[in-house]
Amino acid sequence: MTRRLSLAPWTYGFIVALAMWVVTSAYSGIDSAGATLSGALAFGAFSVVVGTGQMFVVASGPGNIDLSVPSVLTLAAYVSITVMQGSDGMLLPGLLAALAVGAVAGAANFLAIVALRLPPIIATLAWSFVFQSLAFNLGGQATLKPPAGLSRFTLMNLGGVQFMPIAVMVLTLVAMVVLKRTVWGRQLLATGQSEPAARLAGINVARVRLIAYMLCGTAAALAGFLLAGFSGGAALNMGDAYLMESIAVVVLGGTSVAGGQANAVGIWGAALFFNLMSTMLNTFGIQAGVRFLLTGVLIILIVALVPRPRVR
C-alpha cells in the first residue's frame, strides 16, 4: 500500500466526530465534555462490534451484505439470557451459547446464498424474519433480565476508564491483524476484488465467504450478549438501530462496498460520529424527526465529500 499525504477517507469520521464533541461541549458547558465522550465510547462500542462483522461480509465482494444483523443480535441475546437464567455462574455458557447462535446463523445465511443462489440481500433478509420469530417464541414481548454479573461487566470501570470500549478496541486491533497478516484475511480481500481471479489463484472462495458470514453472525451475537447486560435485558426491538448503523459505519469507515478493501479502524470514527451527532442534536433540543433528517443529510454529505480511490 502506498502512503498518501492527503487524508485517508477513514479519517473523516474521526474529524467530524471530534468537531461535534467540541461543539456539544461548547454548547452545554466544558464540564460535560468527559461524560459526552464516555457515553459516545460506550454506545459506539456496540456499533463497532456489529460493524466489524459486517465489514468482513461487505469486503468479501460486491453485493455481499448481511441484513440479518439485528435479528441475530436479538436472538443471541434471548438465547444467552435463557441459558443464564439470571445466574452469574452461567455467564460463560451464556456467552458460548450466544456465539454459537451467531455462527450458525451466519452459516445459514451463506448456505441460502450459495445453495439456493439467492442474492445476499434477499437471503439474509429472509433469515432475519426467521431469527426474529424464534426470539419472539423464546421470550415473547417481555424483557428478560440478565444476570447482575453481566450488567456489572458491561459497565465496569478501571480507574475511571470504562473497560468495555477498551476491550472492543482490542477487538478492532485483532480485526486489523486478521486482515493484514492472516491467510484468511488476505484471501478475503482477494476474493472481494475479483472472484474469478481469486479462484484461479487457488483460493477456496466459498470457504472464505462462509467464514466471513459466520464471523458477522458471531459479532452480532456478541453485541447482543453485551447489550443485554448493558441495557438491562433482552427486548425484541433491541437490534433495530443496528440494521442501518452496521452498514453505515462500515461504509463511512472507508470499507469499499465494491469489495476487496476493508478498514477496521475507520469503523470507530464512524461509530463515534453517529453517537456524538445524536448527542449533539439532542443537546440542541432538536426533535427526533429533524434529527433523522439531519443524520441522513450528513451521511450523504460526508460520503460525497470524501475523496474516493478511482475504480478502473
Binding site: 492472516t182 488476505r186 481469486a198 478502473r312
Partner: peptide
C-alpha cells in the same frame, strides 16, 4: 478480469498464491 487484484501492489499480487508457505506461527511473515 481473471488475473490481477487491482487494488493491490505488486508484492500483494505476487504472494497471494504462496501465503501458506509464508506463514510463521499462524501469521504471514511480512
Amino acid at each position: 478480469s481473471e488475473g490481477v487484484f487491482s487494488l493491490w501492489s505488486i508484492a500483494d499480487n505476487l504472494t497471494i498464491r504462496s501465503l501458506n508457505a509464508l506463514t510463521r506461527g499462524g501469521m504471514i511473515s511480512g
